[in-house]
Every structure is written in C-alpha cells, then in structure tokens.
Design a binder for these strands. Structure first.
Length: 843
RNA sequence: GCCGGAGUGGCGAAAUGGCAGACGCACGGGACUUAAAAUCCCGGGUCCGAAAGGGCGUAAGGGUUCGAAUCCCUUCUCCGGCACCA
C-alpha cells in the first residue's frame, strides 16, 4: 500500500518526566501470559475496537481471504491473519477508520464427506467448526468486526448467488451447454478446468476422467480481453500472479481460414487456426482432432478400420495418458484417406488425425508446417511427409524446424518479407478472398459451475416439459436446500433423491416440472463476498449501492498465492460483471494484493520441508504453544521468521527466541521503575533518545513495506539500547524509550504491551494511545559515519558532522588515508553526502 | 519443454548501486549457583599474523562502474506455475 508519511496522523510523544515517576517501584511479577491474555481478549471485544459503521463512515478496507471452516487451525494458518491483525492494529493506533471483517467460505465437499462418515448434517458440522475457528482467532488476539460476519452456506447469503445467476442468465452470461467435462470419480462431481492440476483433481488427487455432460457455464471467455488488459492496471499486484493469470488466459493472435476437402464439394470443409499464416505455403499436411465432427465424413472406406481403432483408443485414454509426451509418434496419428486443399498453393495435402490436436482449443484442426514447427517436423518424419522451409534459417542453422524470424522463401508473393509483414500480407490475402480472417483465440475456457453435490448453492432453474429451461423468478428465491436428504454415500447427488426438492411446478405454466439438482461451484460464493461485507445484513438487495460505492474497492487484500488463478480470476470476472450491471465502482475489486508465503515444517513421513498438514505429520497446534508461551510469542515469532511473502520453516528454537525477546521487554518495567526522576548522564540520554526516534522511523517504514521481520529486529535493538543505558540514563529518556517501545510493539504483541501499559499506570487501551512519530530534526543533526574508499577498497571510516560538502569531505578523507595516497595522484573524487568518499588514484 | 522466482555464515535472515552478514537461532567461553535451569556478559565468514594490519569472500564464470549481493551476459542448482495451445 502506498501511504504518504504525511497521511499517518501525528501524535506527540509524551513528556518523559510526566510518566517516569508513576512506576510502582517494586519487582515485577514474572512474565506469565496465560495470566492476562484472556482478560485483554475479552476487553477488546467488549470495547468493540473493530466495529465500523459502513453507513456513516468511509475509511480503509482491508481484507484477509475468508477461510473454509475446516475446523482446527494450526500455526501455519496463523500467518496471514497475524500479519493482517498487526497492520490493522497499527492503522487503529494511527486513528484511521478501518473495515476489517471476517467470514466463512462455508459450502464445500469436506462438510458433505463428514456428513457421510459421521451421520451429521453438513450444516451442523460446518457451524461447529466455525465456532472453533472463531475461538482460535480470539486466542490469537486477532480482532475482526464480527457484526459483519458472513457465512456463505446461509440462505441470506446464497440467495444472492441465485439472484446474480438469474441476472447472468438474462444477459446470456450463464448458459447450459454440452461438452466434454472433467469428472472426478472420487468426489463424484465435475470440476472446472482450473481445478484440474496435471490431470488430477485439485482436491483429492484422483485421476480425472472425461465425460460428455450437459452443464451450466458462466461465460468468462467474454471477459478474456478485459481480464487480461486489467492486469496492466494493477501495479500493486505481485508480478508473479499477473504472469500466472496472463498465461492462464493464454491469448494468441493469428488467422483462421477454411480448408476445402478435395473432391468433396458437398462438405463445407473445416476451419484451421494458426499464429503463423506467413508459413502457409509450407503446409504439407493437415491434422484434425480425433473427436472432430468431420472425421466420420472424410474417412475413406479403405482407412475406416484404422481410423476407428485410433479414435476409440484416444477416447479411452485418461487425461494423464494424453498429457504424456512419451511414446512413438507413429502410434499417435492416423491417415484418413482424404486430402484438403491448401488455399495458398491450390495443392492437395493429406488429412491426418492426431491425439495432440485438441478439440477444445482453437478450431480442433491445424495446418501442419513441418519447416517451422518442431512437432509438425517430427510428425512429418514419422509418416514420411514432405518438408518445405518457408522461412530462411540463418546460414549456420543446424536444427530441424526453424521457428524464429527470417525472410520468407518458397512462398511466391511472400518471398523476402519478414514475419510481421508476411503475417499481415497473408492475412489480408485470406480476407480479400473471403477464405479467412484475423482471429484471436484463448486458452481460457468458460467457467463450469455445475457440481453434482448437495452442499452448495442450488442452481435456480427448473426443467419443464413444455417450457424447457425456466429460471426461478427472483421473488421465489432463495431456492433452499431441502432438509429431507440422506448422506448415505451412495452414487449420485443426494438432492436427486429428495422428494420435496426435485418435484416442483413450472413458474411459467404451472405444470409439473423437475428442479435442477446441480449446485454451484463454491468459487461463485467467494467471487463477490468482499462486496457483501460492506452490507451483510441488507435483506432486500445483493448490495447496498451507496455503501458499496463508498467502500469498494478493497484497499488491501491479503491471502495465499495458491489462489493466484482460481479465486482471483473468478472474483475479477464477477466484479467486472457487477460493474457492467452498474452495481459497483471501477472494475477491479482488489487494487492492492499481498500474497503471504506458506509456513512449512519438516515432515515426519518424508523428512522434507512441506506445507503443514495432518497427513504430513508436521502440524504444530497453537493451543499448547499459547498455554506455555502465550499468543504474543506465537505472533512475534510468526512475524519475525522472515519476510512474509516467502516460505518459512517453523522451528521450536525460533519460538524460544521470540519468547526471550518478550521476556526482556517485560523485565524492562523494573529498569524504568528503578530510574531516577533526574536527568541522566548527558551523552547517554541523548544516545537513548536518538535510538528511540530511529526505531520509530524504522518500524514505521518497515511496516509500510510489509517487513514486520525487520521492524521486530529494530525493536530488539531498542531493547538492547535501553538495557545498555539503564545505569547512566535518566528517567526521562528511559521513560520515553520504554513507552515508545510499548506503542510500537503493540501491533505485534498486543496482550503484553496492554498489560505493561497498565502496570505503568495508564488507563485505557494502547489502541487509543496513538502511534508514535519521530523527531526528524534530532535524527538529522546526529554525527554520521563516512566510509573512505581508495580505488574501490574501504580504507577508513570517519565519524563526522552531518552535511559536509564535497570539498570538506574530500579533505578529511585525504588526511585519513594519507598512507594510501603517498606518491600517487588523485585523479577523481566521488562524494556521496554523509555516506562515503571514493578516491581514485594513479601512479 | 516453456514462463517466472530464488541461490549471502552452522541455520532463519539483513543490506536492492555506497562500511556485506544488522537482528535472531544454534554454538564456544565467562559470571551467578552446592548444582542445574533461567538470566546476564564476551566471542564467532575465512585465510595470514603475537598484534597492528592485510588478503579473500554473497552458486560458478565473465562484463558495466570510482564502487556490484544488488545492474547486464553465460552456466549450474533449487522452488513455483503452465504443460502437446496450433
């Protein structure tokens, strides 16, 4: 996030003499967090520090990705919530209005699986988990505005999924279509393209099968270009996420044209898409996908047996087999017996089928140019097909297909042109003759949202024998999940066996009709929840336009990089749809995104570092940790482990270090209590004040750039400075240092700092005590260390007044390194103010 | 295979063109203690040297610069994403 330093409200640092005498001069109790942490947790809730009135105010909107309520949280889960809470508390101390809500992505398979296993309703299981997780947040000292809580499995939320679906249906953005889809036999449901990782189900790892089914889709491809272009206007997103989304959308520009089939004027031919129309003269064969609709028509009698065997073989391949690039090409294709006409040369080329041509991309058919495509080259070699180069490779070229730029050859009227010009001319030629046109294709496919499971939002349509597909009218929403279902685990969606649910009447004609039993992908729920947080209780609309216009977009969005494509792409898509409906401002929901890294632990099973999970046996539960060391220790260690965007390993020794630091802070109350009210030794007081103000600056800057690890290091240094100064410093400087430390440390260790603040005689909460500012003038007049280099090597460091000009700095530098200059000539002097002097000598 | 990111002490790391290793962990030494734990103090990149001091050092090699962990090129290793995309 970019805040100007001036946007941080200024709070005067209290006069030290006023507070140093208030300490109770007694030996402090030992640091025992369980003694006081629960008390402060109750206090923060009671005082409603996190409550924000979105109707009355406008402020900063920060958001952590809302979790699936799986039950117990481990220390790895704590990372983003603790980081978020740290920033939230700093914002509150700065006096800013902040919306910081939390809710539950509460639909999903685990609840249904638990239902089958334990004979408990998914809702019960989910609600119980939510209770446990809320309790965990409280024990971490994490504050949310619970008045805004959203639970996506409640009808008050999911009815708006249905309402939005109706709007998208009206606009043609939701449609029912038949296509080969990914089917997970273990989850017994279809999956979106995005949920299939290397041919396996993202959730359970089962190999996915292809099935031809009628399903509901959302037309995300209509927004492909806007999703792509929008990325360029998100400077505060991690580059990595933007690249992943760009690759996923996979825009490619080229030309599409028709190939006629030789001797078959009765057929329309087929379309091919190519990014290299400039190489068309080199086409020596064409390839169709095995499931291309024309296959049957063009297969000649003498090739039919082989073609059918091949098509059958491909159909029975799993996704995994198909992805494998292994295996001889000879077995991966077959000749159909027909020829197509290359429109550029007018000559016939044989038509093959090959498993590497996919019906789901482009037109499901390609022109093959072995001279300029390595895969086509290999195919041509395997089948003894001719190879014609149409781009002149460099003279020293020893490779096979040449894919880079060069002058066109063997291409009649394209000869001599380079790629860009040749592509343009070839495309123009196609357009003029009405054979083809410029065309853009995407890798992105429409979002398949049907799921054959119970625990999700019912898709609000009915099937009527007379009227066909009929949307459930808005005034009959929500379509509720029925209660009369059994979770027996037998094949099929439990909704299909619910008598009350399936049988209904057609909203249009009133006759008997059948209700849709598929439910929505849960990513629909999370694609707009961030806007609902602003007005979670509005009952008669999805969004309260006035409030949403004031509070959207989200100013800071924090979550794991595992959502780089799935959630973040869907949410951007839905936000653009809402934007087109005029319901939200702008067209990007999250202008600032921060991805925290995973916390990993050494697995008991593999012995390697892996993401914490029960199956890896490397889970660290927070409860025992909090009971022994306190929540503040876990928070400080989590924030100190390393930069939060990086992966970090959890170690018990590290926890101990964080705990020792807090103990040292705790012990400082004795140091300050023992100080006198008089001024201390002059130099010591000054040094301590400088250390204090430097720390304020460092913590402030480090938090702004999301580096809590170095902010903690700075505070550790301040603690060391206070300890060193304790004998000689006066109460004023010690008090200032100590109380500033408590304020700075509060977002990191809220419980201990609140307790110490009270032990120091203050009332109220540090959350209202103001965020410290520093005395820039004090820091500016401190002496600086000047490094002196001779020919790039460090030869001296000097302690000097700040602000020396180049001549004065050069002069003291020459004296300091006289022995290195002896008998030599200084030919150049480089001066960096208050940092270094570099002397270049010769001779 | 393609696209990205990262390689710094025994370990987590800091420094993003200007004193490499801040801060912490682990380790070694010392104080306190009958003892241990806890706590406190001191020391740790490496080589030469008694020391002063100096050489070398940020995966490897090269380059740009007065000056490079940081910028550029080549290579290696690890991590992540995509993966027959026409």
């Amino acid at each position: 996030m970019r805040h100007e330093p001036s946007s941080f409200p200024s709070f005067p640092i209290p006069q030290a003499s006023r507070l140093s005498l208030r300490y109770n001069p007694r030996m402090a109790e030992p640091y025992d967090p369980p003694q006081f942490e629960p008390r402060w947790q109750e206090f923060w809730v009671r005082e409603r520090f996190a409550a924000t009135d979105t109707a009355a105010e406008k402020g900063l909107y920060m958001l952590m990705m809302f979790p699936y309520p799986s039950g117990d949280l481990h220390v790895g889960h704590g990372r983003n919530y603790i980081l978020g809470d740290c920033l939230f508390r700093m914002f509150l101390m700065q006096g800013r209005t902040v919306l910081n809500p939390m809710g539950w992505d509460a639909f999903g398979l685990p609840a249904e699986n638990a239902a089958i296993k334990r004979n408990i309703h998914p809702r019960e299981w989910t609600i119980a988990n939510i209770g446990r997780m809320k309790d965990q947040f409280r024990r971490w000292g994490i504050l949310y505005d619970w008045d805004k809580e959203i639970t996506s499995c409640e009808p008050g939320y999911y009815r708006w999924n249905q309402w939005l679906f109706n709007r998208m249906l009206e606009k043609g953005l939701a449609y029912r279509g038949k296509s080969p889809v990914n089917w997970c036999p273990s989850c017994r449901t279809v999956l979106a393209n995005e949920q299939v990782i290397a041919g396996e189900c993202e959730r359970c790892g089962t190999v996915v099968e292809q099935r031809d089914l009628e399903q509901w889709f959302l037309r995300i491809t209509a927004y492909a270009d806007r999703l792509l272009d929008g990325l360029d206007r998100l400077p505060d997103w991690p580059e990595k996420v933007k690249i992943m989304q760009r690759n996923w959308i996979g825009r490619s520009e080229g030309a599409q044209f028709t190939m006629k089939i030789q001797g078959r004027e009765d057929l329309p031919g087929f379309e091919v898409f190519t990014t290299r129309p400039d190489t068309s003269f080199g086409m020596t064969f064409a390839v169709l996908a095995p499931d291309h609709p024309l296959v049957d028509e063009i297969t000649t009698a003498d090739h039919r047996a082989k073609v059918e065997a091949f098509v059958d073989h491909v159909r029975h391949q799993t996704e995994i087999d198909r992805l494998s690039t292994e295996g001889p090409l000879e077995k991966r294709g077959v000749f159909t017996g027909s020829h197509a006409v290359n429109p550029f040369t007018g000559k016939p080329v044989p038509i093959f089928l090959a498993d590497y041509v996919l019906m789901s991309y482009g037109t499901g058919a390609i022109m093959a140019v072995p001279g300029q495509d390595q895969r086509d080259w290999e195919f041509a070699k395997a089948y003894g097909l001719p190879i014609v180069r149409t781009v002149k490779p460099p003279d020293d070229w020893e490779g096979e297909a040449y894919v880079d730029d060069g002058p066109a050859i063997n291409s009649e009227w394209l000869d001599g042109l380079y790629k860009a010009d040749a592509v343009a001319k070839a495309t123009e030629w196609l357009e003029q003759r009405g054979i083809g046109k410029r065309k853009v294709h995407y890798r992105l496919r429409d979002w398949l949202i049907s799921r054959q499971r119970y625990w999700g939002t019912p898709i609000p349509v009915v099937y009527c024998e007379r009227d066909g597909i009929v949307a459930v009218p808005d005034d009959q929403l929500p379509v509720l999940l029925p209660a009369d279902v059994e979770f027996s685990g037998v094949e099929g969606n439990p909704l299909e066996r619910s008598a009350t649910f399936v049988a209904t009447t057609c909203p249009r004609c009133g006759r008997a009709a059948r209700r849709e039993t598929d439910t929505m992908d849960t990513f629909v729920d999370s694609s707009w929840y961030y806007a609902r947080f602003i007005n979670p209780h509005v009952a008669d609309a999805m969004l309260d336009e006035g409030r949403v216009r004031r509070w959207m977009p989200v100013d800071l969005y924090i979550g794991g990089v595992e959502h780089a494509i799935l959630h973040l792409m869907y949410a951007r898509f839905v936000y653009k749809v809402l934007s087109d409906f005029g319901m939200v401002p702008g067209d990007e929901p999250f202008p600032v995104l921060f991805n925290q890294g995973m916390i990993v632990g050494k697995s008991n099973i593999t012995g390697r570092l892996e993401k914490m999970s029960k199956s890896k046996g490397n889970v660290v539960a927070p409860d025992a940790l909090i009971a022994r060391y306190g929540a503040d220790t876990e928070r400080v260690y989590t924030l100190f482990m390393g930069p939060p965007e990086k992966e970090a390993e959890w170690t018990d020794e590290g926890v101990l270090g964080a705990h020792r630091f807090l103990q040292r802070v705790w012990a400082l109350q004795d140091v300050v209590a023992g100080a006198t009210g008089r001024d201390g030794e002059r130099g010591t007081d000054e040094r301590l004040r400088v250390a204090t103000h430097r720390t304020v600056k460092r913590v402030h800057v480090d938090l702004e750039r999301y580096h809590p690890n170095t902010a903690i290091a700075a505070m550790m240094e301040l603690v060391n400075s206070i300890s060193e100064a304790q004998e000689a410093a006066g109460g004023g400087a010690l008090g200032e240092a100590y109380e500033t430390l408590l304020r700075l440390l509060h977002p990191f260790a809220p419980h201990a700092t609140e307790e110490l603040w009270h032990l120091a005689g203050h009332e109220g909460s540090l959350l209202r005590a103001g965020w410290p500012t520093y005395d820039a003038a004090l820091l500016a007049r401190q002496r600086v260390t000047l490094a002196v280099q001779v020919n790039g090597k460090l030869r001296a460091t000097l302690d000097v007044e700040p602000g020396l000009d180049a001549d004065a700095a050069a002069s003291v530098a020459r004296q300091a390194v006289a022995k290195w200059l002896d008998g030599k000539e200084v030919v150049k002097v480089v001066h960096v103010a208050d940092r270094m002097v570099s002397l270049v000598v010769k001779g």
